[in-house]
Amino acid sequence: MKTKFKVDKHILIPKHSKLSDSQKEKLLEKYNISMNELPRILKTDAAISSLEPKPNDIIKIARKSPTAGEAFFYRVVVDV
């Protein structure tokens, strides 16, 4: 009766991807911020379970925006 549900295909969920260490540094430098100034995402968040997130990873989110077409947003992974 049960079917496998791939969470990232749902229409409400934008694409999530994990940044590499060098991309991370670049990002923080570009906006001149530190990690704890970024918005957060829980480690247990349903949308990133396939990315095997660890605390302090940065998740890049490609949102479909009605005003900008595609807008990138970043969240840092936190424990609970």
Binding site: V7, K9, H10, I11, L12, I13, P14, H16, I41, L42, D45, A46, A47, I48, I61, R63, R75
Partner: peptide, 22 residues
């Protein structure tokens, strides 16, 4: 993939924070 609810907290638990925001 198209089924939705109007309960925001439920969406956050099942689909994650970005879906809840949307």
């Amino acid at each position: 993939y198209r089924t939705t609810t109007n309960n925001i907290i439920e969406v956050q638990q099942v689909l994650g924070i970005e879906a809840a925001r949307q």
